[in-house]
Write a protein that binds this DNA or RNA. Structure first.
Length: 665
DNA sequence: TTAGGGTTAG
């Protein structure tokens, strides 16, 4: 399945292969644990409602420490703490109510006990101790790691009315959005509506949140906002926050301003989220003037800018090219304790280097390193890219080497950056080392990796390797870029790898609606040169109108000389049909070939019969040739057909010489 | 009683 490249394998394991990685066990990589822990901390507000502590608070109101309450409370903590919770569960089954089990379930979710969570859920299902909250919580926690398992749980709900419960639906829709499955999410939402779901403000907000990071998400989000009145839903402060974020991430600052205005009219008060998004919408054009006004307004209502806000302001200043103020603001972030990681430094370095101020970027980089700021290696990546952009490949290569030793575990972007540096510096050995590293760490190459490698292989004149890599890239479903393909097609053609060139052409042609017209012409020359005339015919047939007359002529002649004789008439018809004027030489060659192969008699007769109707006649030398061989084809028939050519030629001469009389008759 | 919102480098 894998295509070997450079003797190594570019492993591309399953992008979404959730079956193999998580269906049986929930062993989590460190990153996921961090994400889940972070997610869990935000949910404590909801979970306290059912936590034992709350039970303790609520219980005294009705009955002070009733026996049953105390029994349930201790049963909950016993199950939570038990090394073999299932057996404790069995023992305490009679004491625990469904809501107690839900408390335990959420506790497992928060503390990352995935295996236990699933086992508990199965147990609850088996014993019929299950409620809407069980499904909702379970889907939320399971979905954070494994959306297909969450979907499975949702699909397994036996009761149709539970399946359209708004809490459960919100939970599963949210899990799809968080997993970047927006399309599936919208489809499921539509299905739920057909099944009878009455979406609420949370449902809509969940879907809208999916459009924040989506390219061109704005119009689609607005479509959804348009649905709100039909469902009797009014936008609340949270939804305004989401919509503003969508505006900001799509560079729609005017629309964001309008929404802010609408909020004010409706009497909503603005919070830090609303201001943050509006500020972010100004970062697109680096509109620092508006950003400064906004900061003033915000402070006037006693909202204190937080880390996010100040970082976003830094982004506005950088985009606006205000580098001195950016440096000042970075110092402010430092003293506020908001620059403890590399991110703001990275932003400034990147901005400076893209503005051609590489040395200033480098000084920020050195400064950051000197201060011992926590870094995951992104800052190094930015510097490497910046050095490459300025064609300082030796320095880029050196920094890549340093990065390799400093950061053992690199992510794909860092690996790509280093790979690019080594490729540009022409370090074949290091290129191979990077690929090996990717392979060992089971990091799948992405579009950029393939692109970098193919460009490099072309540069190093390893054209067949470049070809293999583009095949690999295509088979992994990556989009092919026309310019890269075109360059490879050219080089393959030049090196007499015409079939490979044609294969690249076809991959591009069938994965894109339109390709530039010169490419058809280019591949046609290559195919003609390789005498791959049948393939050339396919290209002409599909794209004749985009190919120049001289190239069509070249193709026609080549085909008449050595193309498949059975296709000669078809080729002539296609050429004529495209508006190309077939010259006498082509007819002469075709006819001589037919004469040399009398078993193709029918084809010759067909051609001769076709010609006069299209305004073609044989010239005198060809005519003589035919007459000389007419015994092979039937003298009478030939004489009859040629007489039509004779009339045809007179008509043609007449029409050429007397056009002015034609209209007057 | 369960669900929803902001910024970020390559």
């Amino acid at each position: 399945m894998e295509t070997p490249v450079l003797g190594l394998e570019l492993r591309c394991p399953h992008l979404f292969n959730t079956h193999s990685c998580c269906s049986s066990s929930f062993s989590l990589p460190a990153v996921s644990v961090r994400i889940l822990t972070a997610a869990a901390t935000t949910t404590t507000a909801y979970t306290v409602v059912e936590s034992p502590a709350t039970v303790a608070e609520e219980a005294p109101r009705s009955k002070r420490h009733s026996n049953s309450y105390l029994a349930r409370k201790s049963a909950i903590s016993e199950v939570q703490r038990s090394p073999d919770f299932l057996s404790s569960l069995q023992r305490l089954a009679r004491v625990l109510k469904v809501q107690d089990l839900n408390v335990i379930l959420r506790d497992f979710g928060i503390s990352g006990r995935w295996q236990d969570l699933i086992q508990l859920f199965d147990w609850m299902q088996k014993h019929g101790k299950i409620s809407v909250s069980t499904y909702s919580s379970c889907i939320k926690f399971v979905g954070a790691k494994n959306f297909s398992k969450a979907l499975e749980i949702y699909q397994s709900i036996p009761d149709e009315s539970t399946k359209i419960n708004v809490y459960i639906c919100n939970s599963i829709l949210s899990c799809l959005v968080k997993n970047g499955k927006l399309d599936s999410c919208i489809k499921l939402f539509d299905q739920m509506k057909r099944d009878g779901l009455k979406p609420d403000v949370v449902t809509y907000n969940t879907l809208l949140a999916g459009f924040i990071k989506v390219k061109n998400g704005y119009p689609k989000a607005m479509e959804l906002v348009g649905e709100l009145p039909h469902n009797g839903i009014q936008m609340d402060s949270v939804m305004y926050g989401t919509v503003l974020a969508i505006c900001a991430s799509n560079g729609r600052c005017e629309e964001a301003e309008n929404f802010i205005q609408q909020m004010k009219v409706e009497g909503h008060s603005l919070n830090i989220y609303h201001y943050s998004s509006l500020l972010n919408s100004y970062s697109w054009k680096g509109d620092y003037k508006k950003a400064d006004d906004l900061m003033t307004e915000m402070k006037s209502i006693r909202l204190v800018p937080n880390k996010v806000m100040m970082t976003t302001l830094l982004k506005v200043y950088i985009k606006g090219g205000l580098f001195d103020r950016s440096r000042e603001l970075l110092s402010e972030l430092e003293s506020a304790g908001y620059a403890e990681n590399e991110m703001p430094y990275c932003m400034l370095m990147d901005g400076l280097s893209k503005a051609g101020k590489l040395d200033e970027a480098k000084s920020i980089f050195d400064d950051m390193k000197g201060k011992g700021v926590k870094s995951d290696g992104y800052a190094n990546s930015i510097m490497i890219s910046a050095l490459c952009r300025s064609k300082r490949f030796e320095e880029a290569k050196q920094l890549s080497r340093d990065s390799e030793t400093t950061y053992e575990n690199c992510d794909l972007v860092m690996l790509n950056t280093m790979l690019c540096a080594y490729c540009r510096a022409g370090e074949m050995e290091s290129v191979m080392r990077m690929m090996k590293k990717m392979d060992e760490q089971a990091i799948s190459p992405d579009y950029n990796t393939f692109h970098i490698l193919i460009k490099y292989f072309i540069k190093e004149k390893l054209h067949l390797l470049a070809y293999q890599t583009i095949l690999d890239m295509h088979s992994k479903g990556h989009r092919l870029e026309e310019e890269l393909c075109s360059s490879l097609i050219y080089h393959l053609g030049k090196n007499r790898a015409q079939l490979e060139a044609f294969s690249v052409y076809n991959m591009l042609r069938y994965s894109k609606r339109t390709i530039c017209r010169e490419l058809h012409e280019k591949i046609l020359h290559i195919l003609i040169q390789g005498n791959l005339l049948r393939d050339a015919y396919v290209v002409v047939k599909d794209n004749a109108k985009m190919i120049s007359q001289p190239t069509l002529k070249k193709f026609g002649r080549a085909f008449m000389i050595s193309g498949n004789i059975n296709l000669v008439n078809d080729v002539l018809k296609v050429l004529h049909g495209s508006g190309h004027k077939i010259d006498q030489v082509q007819f002469e060659i075709a006819i001589s070939r037919y004469i040399s192969q009398p078993d193709k008699k029918e084809l010759l007769l067909q051609l001769l019969q076709w010609m006069p109707g299209q305004g073609y006649v044989v010239d005198s030398s060809t005519r003589n040739l035919i007459l000389k061989n007419s015994h092979l084809f039937g003298r009478l028939l030939i004489a009859e057909i040629l007489s039509k050519h004779h009339i045809g030629s007179r008509t043609i001469i007449k029409s050429r010489s007397e056009p002015k009389f034609r209209g007057k008759r």
